Computed example of a mutant assay.
Amino acid sequence: MQISIGRRALVAGAAVAFALAALPALAQNDKPLRVILPVGTGSGVDAIMRAMGPAFSKALGQPVVIENLPGAGGITGTQAIIKAAPDGLTLGVVSNNHAVNPSIYKKMPYDSLADITPITVGGATPFVLVANAHRVPAKSVKDFVALLKSKPDAYSYASSGNGTILHLAAAMVLDEAGAKALHVPYKGVGPMVTDLVGGQVDFGVVAVPSAAPHIKSGALRPLGVTGKERVAALPDVPTVAEQGLPGVDVAGWFALVGPARLPPELVKRFYNAFVAAANTPEVKQAMEKQVTILNPMTPEASAQFFRTEQERYARIVKRANVTME
């Protein structure tokens, strides 16, 4: 997944702020904006949006109320987003599973492309392939792949659940490497990381913020970042792609969306406010601490990104033979 760390979108902050100031009638609204998150409190997307909330509210000139509606892999909250009136009073923030779900669930209660209005793919949190330092002797992706191939099915990998993005990210690595390992799904990232550190499972793909303290302690060994670029938080860790698996490109992205038929003037207003918020010093500082890279895509680029991601994950799901009821 290519989300570069380019500067152009963020440099535009001053111009966006000027444009918002020039349109006070459009930017002011006494009614609160409801932002639905189809994830639980404490998740990565939740932390990102709560950190951005005050600046986003200020840029809009409107109160912002964040509401968590987790369940069914994001489907519960997303249903609430798409059922909302396209009046600019309800938006939502979706992530990778929005593009994954159509391929792993036999029946979906909505069309993940037609029933939303993309506003911006706001950015991403990088992932890293890690191994238990005591159970896996490999210190590079090349050595890791050779080890897996020398002992087929001898090693296991953890995920935050069957069909989750961390499952598919690890499956992508294995598919690209032409290797196999036993999948051990957990109910969430916390139990997954606990057992990775404890050695109950051998390796997995984890968001950098979740892995960082255990990498620092020496319990987990980082083998490669799974995006196209290295990350500042792990400057000495090369990407998986540059180590011989160029098809591995995945990170935890998030996107601001509205219900279908959201008027273009409102899409523009929300996009401009998001970019303005992303440029504030307090949001930049918070994102740096959370190891999240903000690089807001335009609404048009975001719509294309959604289509491309859904097609890409459909191929990965098929190869990994993942299904859910």
Rank of each mutant, 00 (worst) to 15 (best):
V248W: 01
V275S: 00
P70F: 06
R8M: 11
S112P: 08
A114V: 03
P24G: 11
F305Y: 11
V197N: 04
T308V: 15
V283S: 04
K318S: 07
R269L: 15
V257D: 07
N96P: 08
L266G: 09
S217H: 04
P86Q: 02
A169H: 05
L147D: 08
V173D: 02
A179L: 04
L37D: 09
V141C: 08
L174M: 10
A80Y: 07
A51H: 00
A84C: 07
V173H: 05
V136N: 09
R221N: 02
P299D: 13
K107W: 01
V291F: 07
D30Q: 12
I316Y: 15
A277H: 00
V130Y: 08
F56W: 10
N321Y: 13
E282C: 01
P264A: 09
S57A: 15
R135A: 14
V100C: 02
P24C: 04
D195H: 15
P299H: 06
S43I: 07
K180D: 12
L60W: 13
A47M: 11
F274T: 02
L245T: 11
I36E: 05
K284D: 08
A154N: 13
S159N: 14
S217P: 05
V231F: 05
A21Y: 05
V11M: 10
G258N: 08
F274L: 00
V283R: 00
M1E: 07
G178C: 03
A59E: 02
Q200A: 15
F203Y: 15
P213S: 11
E300L: 12
G161F: 09
A154R: 14
A99C: 04
A276D: 11
V121C: 09
P86Y: 00
L89C: 01
R7I: 12
L113Q: 03
L168E: 02
V173A: 00
I3Q: 12
I66S: 06
P137D: 05
F127N: 02
V64A: 05
Q79F: 06
S112Y: 11
I66L: 14
P246V: 13
Q304K: 13
R307K: 13
A251N: 14
K187N: 14
G71R: 00
G224H: 06
G178W: 01
S95N: 10
A17R: 15
A19D: 11
M297P: 03
A179W: 04
A170K: 09
V45K: 03
I316P: 09
D143K: 04
G40D: 13
V39F: 15
T90S: 02
N132A: 06
F18L: 15
V197D: 07
T226L: 10
V283I: 09
K180V: 11
F203D: 10
M192A: 15
G227W: 10
